[in-house]
Amino acid sequence: MNNAFIQLSDVSLRYGGGTVALDHTSLGIDQGDFVALVGPSGCGKSTILKLVAGLLKPSSGAVIAAGREVGTVASRGPGNSNASEAPRLRVGLAFQNPTMLPWLTIRDNVMIPLKIVDPFRQDYRRKRHGEYTERVEALLTQVGLRGFGDKRPWQLSGGMLQRASLCRALVHEPELLLLDEPFGALDQFTREELWDIMQSLWMTRKPTVLLVTHDLRESAYLANRICVMSARPGRIIDVRDVPFARPRTLEGSYSPEFAGLVQQLRMRIAAARRDGDAVDLAQSQGVPA
């Protein structure tokens, strides 16, 4: 377990105000795996993602990625001068909000990582109109955005922007892809369409994926493994393997087995919420839990 690609060992995170966002959590993710984190809102799902990304520093415990401890990538403050010495783990990140830059075309937006990430940025000027453009076009085609490269973000619908956002997260061929409710703001039809696209992207490129979601069907559709988290303080209370063969289809997602798994996950979370409420109640009444 300790030589997993991503390894959280006994990690806790306490925010400034004393709120415990994450409580002694351990989690291992193998290279090329697809892991989903589900749980009630405010349970620390996004916190785990930010810890793995290095955007947050754990209060205790260690976060190891590709054999190295994740340092904060924050450029503010001293002490990160050695961050650039070893080749850093290549990470892609996509949020619920696609955050496209309005003054750039979709193609240029998707190309941003190539302008910043290290092995690519050296050649950016030379290759941006050749190799890099081809690479972006190939990705856009794969997500069904062929011919939209010259459009501006405001000319595209929410679903299209989210596809572009996935392209931006993948264009630099990250070893690790972090998705924080990427389909949360979309309607049901668009969302299911994007599940398929996400699945084919993962199957062709095989990055390690950590997906944070509150949609249980989504997690069962996409992930190899689902980690169920409890409400505050966040803790992983259950890990389920998803046995369904790939490529998974929408029809398959209405099979009894699939529905059964979703149902079990739902019950697990509901139970965790009840327990959490009981603990809250006990604490507020001064009874040691």
Binding site: V91, G92, T99, L101, I112, K115, R168, L178
Partner: peptide, 28 residues
């Protein structure tokens, strides 16, 4: 947007990169 800044920081963007690619155009 803080989210965009997160995306760029995870890519290893330096403060200068963020200023040049996002901050200044946004301030135009």
């Amino acid at each position: 947007e803080p989210e965009l800044e997160d995306v760029l920081r995870v890519l290893g963007a330096r403060k200068r990169d963020i200023l040049w690619n996002v901050g200044l155009p946004r301030a135009m």
